[in-house]
Each structure stands twice: as C-alpha cells, then as structure tokens.
Write a protein that binds this DNA or RNA. Structure first.
Lengths: 204, 204
DNA sequence: GTCTATAAAATGATAGAC
DNA sequence: GTCTATCATTTTATAGAC
C-alpha cells in the first residue's frame, strides 16, 4: 500500500515534503475533501511528480496514518507500571495535552478519520490500539484494587483523558470562538483545570 | 440561503425526506466527502428532483446546520440559574450524554464541521454559542463564588462536559473498537463514570 | 525525476419534456 | 413535481517527451 523504503537523498526529501503537505491538507479537509492538486501545490511539486512517489491519493493517506500511529500511541505506552499511580496518570494526561498543543494536525487527521467511522484505520484500532489499552487498563485496575487510586472504570478513564486533551486540538476552532479574540493560549488554563479534575477524581 | 417555508404537504414531506437523508450522509462523510447523488439515493429521489427543493448541495448543508443548532444548544439553555448547583451541572451532563446516544448523527455533523475549522458555521459559534456560554459561565462562576461548587474554570468546565459526552457519539467507532465486540452499550457505564467524575470535581 | 498534455471518471447543476 | 438527458467542471490518474 505504501512505497518501499526510500533509497536516495532526493527520494527521502520529496517523500518527506509530500508527507508534510499531506498532513496539513488531510487534517484540514478530511480524506475526501482533500485533492491531490492541493497537496502537490502545498509541497511545491507538480501533480504527476507527486504521483511518481505515491501510487494514489489513498496511498499517501495510508502512509501518513501508519507513520503517525506510533507518535499517537507513545504517551500511553509510556505509562509506567511501577510509577506512582496518580503521578503516572497526570503525566500521561499532560503528555497528551502537550501533543494536542504541539501536533494539532496529527490529532485532527485521526479525528477526521474516526468521526467518519474509521473506514481506513479500523484494523489498527481493533488490534494495536485495543491491545495497548487492554494492557494499560489492567495496570490501572491493579492500582485501584491496591487502594492507590480511587476506584472507577479504567477504560472510561482512558477515554476521558483522550477526549479532554484532544478537544483542544480537534475543536480548536470552537474553543477559540467561545473564548473570544482577546483570549490568550488556552493550554495553560487547560492543564491547571485537568490536573485538578483528575486529582479530585482519582485521589484515594 | 435556505428555501422559503414549505407551503404544500408534498413540499414539507420531501424537504423532511431530504433533510433526514442529508443528515445521514453529511454526518458520515463530511461536507466535501458527501455527494448530491448519495443524498438523493438515500432519500429515494432523483438528483434533479432533490435540486428542485434546494438550490445547491451547500444550501442543504446550511439548512441542516441552522435547523439543528437549537437542538444542539437546548441542554445548555436549560441550565437553571435557581436550581441546586451540582444537580444542575449533572443534569446538563446527562442531557448531553443522552443526546450523544439518541442523536449521534447530529453530533457528528457538527464534529465534522468544527474539526475542519468550522468554515460554514463560524458565525454561529462566535455569536449564538459564545453568548450562551458567556451567560452560563457567569451563573457557574456565581455558584463557585458562593461556595456552592468547588472553584474551577467555568469555561473549561463547559468544554469538558462537551468533550466527554460527545466523545461517545463522535468517536463511537474507536470506543467500540477498543471495548471489543463482546461489549454492551457503553452509555450506562459512561453515565456512572461521568457522574462520579463531576461530583468529585465540583463538590465543595 | 520532472514536466506538459490528456484521458477517464465523478460530480454539481441545468434544460426541457411530460 | 418529476423525469431523462446533458453540460461544465473538477479530480484522479496516466502517457510520453525531455
């Protein structure tokens, strides 16, 4: 589905250029709403030249999604079995919030795909993502059973961290519309708010 | 932008048919990802017949968005100044969660639009929505100042209710992928989880 | 590797008969 | 009001020169 590993310097450079441009375009307009022309312009390449590196629009999209899946899952992977429970959860939340701030396009790329039923990514959700969440849910459950965290549903706890942190990237347009033009960067306030929220929820 | 008020019975029926079909299609594929043909098929009308009732694809989309904005805002409008503060917030959360369960297409219609930068709806967000949130944020702030709720940021409190409840509609595909095929309806668990969350956060 | 030109299909919208 | 036929444009993708 994706191109073989790039060999030459020029191939690496152009594939990186295309990936960067495609991330901007797909995250803003969704898969169907994006055109190869748009991506080519954004990458400063001609359309046929772009299609020399990827066989189709779908291949670019697939390449992006699988390339970014690791970044997407890294914060949850970093949740440490042997850490201090509440601090581990708060650190996970903060890393996710930081990703929303630093990589909003990546977040919206996945958001677009999932809101539309995840047709091109369902496989990865049912395998990679589910297995990771199952594993970490067990860790959280053990913490709760040991009385180190107040009891609640570990799956919905993870969903709530996703939704609360990704909201500031995915629904950025709405957040800014509601807070108004005079408002500063909402992320510092969000971090304070979410720290309080999870501390009060989880402190035994 | 939208058609004038329908006069005859047949007009009312067909406009309702088209709106229903368009809601399904737009909420699943986004504006650009949807085709007039798809909507027409879903409504059991020919494409020219559909375009007899609406001048363009964009007009159908606009019609839907403004028609549904009231439903979308109703739960927050119902937040009562003179109610018991924690109960009012919990009731608002439950109504939003119920909307995610009963009207997931409406939720995804707005989610698609906002994730893509809200190009066709920004006006409403900056006026109608902002004014309503400003008003209710003041009510919540007054409750906190009076010691009836634990202090926190009222805007981010509202954002958190939106993100947590809409997550179960907008990211439904992911929720089901992670919970697995053997899992029941996640809404009852979600309601329990979110009740605990907001109670622990807000109880003075 | 990159370009111009263009094929082939999809899509939004209209004309005009009934 | 509804249909068939069709136009105009956009869009994905390819051919072939350089």
């Amino acid at each position: 589905m994706t191109k073989p590993v790039p060999r030459t310097r020029i191939q690496r450079k152009n594939i990186a250029l295309i990936s960067e441009a495609a991330l901007s375009v797909f995250s803003t307009h969704g898969f169907r709403g994006s055109t190869v022309d748009q991506i080519a312009r954004e990458a400063n390449l001609s359309k046929p030249n772009l299609l020399y590196y990827f066989p189709s629009k779908e291949a670019i999209h697939q390449h992006l999604l699988s390339m970014l899946m690791d970044t997407w899952l890294a914060p949850l992977k970093a949740l440490q079995d042997d850490g201090e429970p509440l601090e581990e959860i708060l650190t996970y939340m903060r890393r996710k919030l930081q990703m929303s701030r630093d990589h909003p396009r990546e977040s919206r790329l996945f958001a677009n795909e999932i809101v539309q039923g995840a047709p091109r990514i369902m496989d990865m959700l049912e395998t990679e993502l589910k297995e990771l969440v199952d594993e970490k849910a067990k860790v959280i459950e053990a913490w709760m059973a040991a009385g180190k965290l107040a009891p609640s549903d570990p799956y919905h706890l993870i969903f709530s961290i996703w939704s609360l942190t990704q909201h500031y990237a995915d629904f950025d347009a709405q957040v800014h519309a509601v807070l108004g033009p005079g408002h500063d960067d909402p992320f510092p306030e969000a971090e304070t708010y979410l720290t309080t929220l999870f501390t009060r929820l989880l402190q035994p």
